[in-house]
Amino acid sequence: MIKARVTVTLKNGVLDPQGKAIEHALDGLGFAGVGSVRQGKVFDIEIDNADRAKAEADLKAMCDRLLANTVIENYTVAID
């Protein structure tokens, strides 16, 4: 079995109001020096397949077709 982690983040230049709110909240907790916060999503995916190359291609297709909205988001795929 292959375990993978997909990370989806907002593209640079896309406003992230949730990240901004988190940034302000961290500031409110007294964490000084937080320059900026950008939030995103993490998907841990298990694939019943030993073929790494196929799993990698499938994971990329999953990102392009559903997990990320490539108009506003970037993604990275990491396989264990």
């Binding site: 896309v14 406003l15 109001p17 949730q18 709110a21 909205n69 108009v71 506003i72």
Partner: peptide
């Protein structure tokens, strides 16, 4: 419709959350 690619752009969280 934007998620389906039938219209351009994206609809994001309201700026005031």
């Amino acid at each position: 419709l934007v998620e389906a690619g039938m219209l351009p752009g994206a609809l994001m969280r309201n700026d005031h959350l």
